[in-house]
Structures are given as C-alpha cells and as structure tokens.
Nucleic acid binder design. Structure first.
Lengths: 356, 356
DNA sequence: CTGAAAGCGCTAACAG
DNA sequence: CTGTTAGCGCTTTCAG
C-alpha cells in the first residue's frame, strides 16, 4: 500500500546527493566504491526502481513503441505483434497497443494519443497509406516509424506483403486450373487498402491471363448473411467457378456457406484464400491460399523502428516476390477433367504439409 | 521534424500564463470568454497537445493499463486482449502489453517494468497464482489489478474459467460415452497452473465416475515429436480410448498425429479439447471441447481494474459454472455400439453449430 | 479572473 | 569524487 521510493529517498538513506545515486545506478560518471555500496544497500532496502515517467520527462523519450493495428483478434496481426514483441523485449522496449477496429477515424486519434504519450516510435497499419492524415503527422514530426501490411508510399519504410503480386499469383493458379470466371470476396472493402490492392492485382492478373474480369462480392461488418449473399451472387453470375477470398477467415466462411447451399467445394466452387493461417491445413479440404509470414513481418517492422531510434543500419524488408508463397490445397479444383469424375482432382498434391 | 509545442508555447502565443492555458483546456477553474478564444486560437495554430508524460509526473498516474500474458499468438489471449482493449478505449485508457512467452522468470521483470512505467492498473495471467512474487509486489503496492485465466487466491480479483469444474465436465462426457481409461495431454505442464488445475479437476472427475486414473502425456515446447510420443504412449497404455487435451490446439495436433498413426478419430481414439476456438467447428470431425469466452473474460478483467481505479462498483465475474460450456462434437465416440458399427455414432448432434 | 511559483522524479551541467 | 541546482511539461495552490 506504500508509495514507490524515489531517488531522493535513496539519497537520504545512503547519505548522499541524488546525483550520486543517479551516477551509481546508471553507471555514468565516477563514484567511490564505498559510495556504491551504500547506494546499493539503500536501493535494496527500499526496493527502489527508477520512475520511467520522471526519466521520460527529462530525456523527452520513452522506451515504448506504439502499435496501431486494426484488430488483435485477427491472427495475422496477433502473430505480427508477437513477432514484434519478441524483438522489442530483447531491446528493452515495451509495446503500447491500440486497435482501431478497422475504423479509419480512430486511426488518427490513436496516433495522436501515442504521440502525446511520447512513444519513441510507431509501427502501424493504416486504412489508406496514400492519404492517411495520421501518417503525415508522424512524418512531419520526424517520428521513427514503419508501416506494417501497408505497401508504402515514398519515404516510408514498410514491411508488407506484395498484395498485388500475390493476388496476381492467385489469378495464375486459377488460370492454370482452367478457371475463367471468378469472384473476389472482401470484407470492408472500402476500409482496407490491403483488400483494394489485392483486388486490383487480381484484376490485372486475370486480364493478363485472358480470364474474365472478376466480380466483386463485398460483405459488411458481420458475416451475418454471407450464405444469402453468396446464393444471390452465384445466381447473378452463374458461370463463376471459383472465388478468391481476401483472407483465410473469409475463405473458410465462404466454404461453409457453399456447403450450406449444397455446393461441393471444390467441384462446384473452388476457393483460394489469403494469409496462410495454420487452420487452413486442418480443414477438409485443405485451403489453397497465399502463405505469408506475419511474425517475420512484425519482427521486421519492429527492428526497423528500433534501428531508426538507435541510428543503426535499417534492416531490408524481403524483396517483393519473397513476401508470399502460393500453397496448393484441396479447395482448388482442376477443371480439365470430365465432370463425370469425382471432381477432386487437383494438379498439386493436396497432402502437402509444410508443418511436417 | 519540429518538436512538440508545450503549454508554455501556447501561453506565449496567447499572451497569458501557463496556468490559464491549463485551466481553459482542462475546463478547471474559470476564464474569460476572450481568454478562451485566444487560447483556442493558439492551440489550433500550434497543433498543441498535452504531453502525457508531464501530466503523469505531476499526477503520478497514467491512463495506461499494463497487461501481462503468456503469448499473443494464442488466440485465447489474443481474444481476451481484444475484449479488454475495447473496454479500455471507451474509458480513454491505453494498453501496455508484455508477453512472457510462458517463462515464469520474465513475469516478474514484466511486472517491475509496468510498475516503473506507473501504469494505473494491471491485468495479468501468471504461471502460478499461489506463489507469484510479482503478484505479491502488486498487492503490497495496492496497485489495482485483476487476474485473467488464473483462479484467484484470496484477496485477488479474477476473471477465469473454472478449470477444475470444466475438466470434471470433460470426465463426465467421457463417462457418459462409456470411456473408462483416458489420457491427459498437456504442453509445458509445469509452467501453467491452468494445465495443472485442469489435470487435477479431471482426475477428480474421473474418480467420481469410477473411471481409471487418467495417464499424463506431457510434451515440451515444440510439437516436434508428438506423433512418436503418442505412439509410445498408446503402446504403454493400450486400453486408452480417449484423450483430453488441455487446449484446442493440442487437440487438433493430436488428431493429426492419430491420423498419421492410421488411427481413426473418434473410433479408435476419441479427443476432447479445451477453449472452444472457432476452428474446432471447421475441422472434420468437429472437435468436442469446452467452450469458453475469452473476449468476455478479458473485457471483464479490464472493467474490474477500471472500477478499482475509478472506485466504482466492481463487476462480478460469472459464477463458476457459467464460465464454460461443453460442446459435443464428432471427435468423441460413444462406445456402447458394437465395434462392427461405423464408430461414428455420437450421443449429441455433431452438427450443432453455435455460430449459425 | 489571472499569473507567479512550487514541485512531481529524474539527469546533466557546474562547482567545489 | 561529490553535492547543488536548473529544468523537462504539467497542475495546483496562493496572491493579486
């Protein structure tokens, strides 16, 4: 129930000035062995610890890195944060975390809050990197920062998946399996430039391979009526044979919806996801998807910010084509075989299992 | 690239004292309308924001709540944090997050760090609530705090699953399906009192129902050789018909291992998990498990700490038997039918789907 | 209604 | 080698 001891208390108990205590404890400047002992004793007796607040005020910096992500319930961000966390901990930094819940408005206030708390740097995922007001504030202040899962505009560091290229790779996969007309499923399309970039890259990829322009199937906040939406969507676009979902959760959800509509995945409808979460390997059929490495990206973004702070060499993010991998899976069917077949033929071994 | 404006700058520009600026901006004490206007103008012009560090030093508190959890990659904690996050945000608090990576040693240093940063309160999951040194420090300081996923010793608030009762419920489920000899699978058994409590409750439950004492199958850090371990385990305990995994990830992993050993789940081996993560419903067969509500628990713990801080009424955690639910699933077989049967009979509708 | 000044815990000159 | 002191940004008496 007692208040924390301050440096003054220590000085008093050790019978010296506060400067001496500071010098001894920080190992800055010299002190007699005897003094050191007395200070150490006083510290032990009082269970003294520096107040980081006092320190921060004086040094006008904190050992805290701010993080702004849409949601921590999404394993992609959770894993990225875990990766960053490990890096920070090693360097003695802590993580101040704010979630925006995919609301662009709260982005700005989150950033303002972090700035007022004097974070030493910021790692952030924004809704629209091109015109994020928060991002310009950060840049104007010269605050060390790094984007995460945003393809960076000039003069911003970023650790991210090359969404366009990855989406084009999905188009390639569909094309190689002779799909011609496909759909693109997105949640909160307008609130995520990831989704928009994936759509854009996918359209380009489809065009390049002579496929039809993909139809957009957009759903809102909750998955509520996904099954109904899918039904409507397929009846409006009867020639669709596959759907590219902009993340694995959506992909799994759409698989379930397809089942409810008595559609066989992949025979009646092929699905490809994005992210590569582990679960995709546990479901049946396994999910064809783009595999990314959230933990590595989070760690990279963390290291980048730290390197800005410490003025050490800035780590290089992986080159664009190294940020993702296509993983084959049972949810993607090859349309070359006759439909009298069981429809489960895939051009890749669906038993492929990287975790083993 | 410019430094933040301070209250002094504002006072200077507004042509008044700093006290006036403080009074106007905080709406504490009176000020003439004209003064208010001048201050407002200066604030806008300078894009002024209070430094929380200065404020914290003076008020010796922060609008920050510290969180200590084992890992953020585990969706149980990620969801709990998401729940807490939403509560904090509403009240204008931020989350300072530290992960211990299941290392009891880093628990203490995490808590020390949070204290030195003057957090207003702490939500934490510790390795052993009965003898956590960090926890006693927190209590001695009278720091507002709440345990999460730890069954609380006296004089600590806690939002947690009643692990013992839930584990006993699992014993009941096995018993009702005529299983007699089962195993208990745990990861890092010695580092988690959750796992230990579940084991204890499970043993009690089994005994109460006349089942044999469950055998312990313990694995280390990585899942590496789970399949080998399982093989050995089953050959040493040939009469085992079911395994209770102390969390759903382990349950899914053990299902896969069983498959690799050419065992049919649930016919040759039934599995029950713990946590109730969504994925359990997406796999085939669906996972029988204990369903918990991580988000609710996290939000509750957050609300509890806030209520301590604000000296408002402390929210009551759900009563012990309300903290979990058993969910039937295809991974649990009824052993009453002849083995000539397909073995897929379950006493509960496995199509049960709470998300729908 | 307003401003000057003290002080929160700490570090860094600067004297001694 | 050591102590005194100013000052980081803010709030809060206390006078005026």
């Amino acid at each position: 129930m007692h208040q924390s001891a301050t440096i003054k208390d220590v000085a008093l108990k050790a019978g010296c000035g506060v400067a001496t205590v500071s010098r001894v404890l920080n190992n800055t400047g010299s002190a007699s062995p005897e003094m050191r002992i007395r200070v150490a004793a006083a510290v032990k007796e009082l269970d003294f610890q520096f107040s980081e607040v006092g320190r921060s005020l004086q040094s006008s910096t904190t050992r805290t890195i701010g993080f702004v992500v849409p949601s921590i319930a999404n394993p992609v961000y959770a894993d990225a944060l875990q990766g960053a966390q490990e890096i920070l901990t090693c360097s003695g930094y802590q993580m101040l975390l704010i979630c925006t819940n995919y609301s662009p408005e709260s982005e700005l206030s989150a950033i303002r809050t972090l700035i007022s708390k004097q974070v030493a740097g910021i790692v952030l995922t924004v809704s629209d990197a091109e015109r994020s007001e928060g991002l310009s504030i950060i840049r104007n202040r010269g605050l060390p920062h790094c984007l995460l899962y945003n393809n960076a505009p000039v003069s911003h560091e970023s650790w991210s998946v090359d969404d366009k290229a990855a989406a084009a790779r999905v188009a390639q996969a569909f094309s190689e399996n002779l799909h011609n007309q496909t759909g693109f499923l997105a949640l909160n399309f307008n609130k995520s430039d990831r989704a928009r970039q994936r759509y854009e890259g996918y359209c380009v990829g489809c065009k390049a391979r002579g496929m039809k322009k993909p139809q957009l199937l957009e759903i809102s906040e909750d998955f509520e009526d996904l099954t109904m939406k899918l039904k409507l969507f397929l009846s409006e676009n009867p020639s669709i044979t596959g759907i590219f979902a902009s993340n694995d959760f959506l992909a799994l959800a759409i698989v379930r919806s397809a089942r409810k509509l008595a559609l066989n995945v992949p025979r009646d409808l092929s699905i490809i996801g994005f992210d590569g979460i582990d679960v995709g390997l546990m479901v049946e059929p396994t999910l064809a998807t783009i595999v990314t490495e959230p933990k590595m990206l989070g760690a990279g973004a963390g290291r980048t910010v730290l390197s800005f702070i410490n003025k050490t060499e800035v780590p290089k993010p992986p080159s664009a084509d190294q940020t993702f991998n296509f993983r084959a899976g049972g949810s993607l069917a090859y349309l070359g075989a006759e439909s009298s077949d069981d429809g489960k033929i895939t051009p890749f071994p669906s038993s492929f299992d990287p975790t083993n």
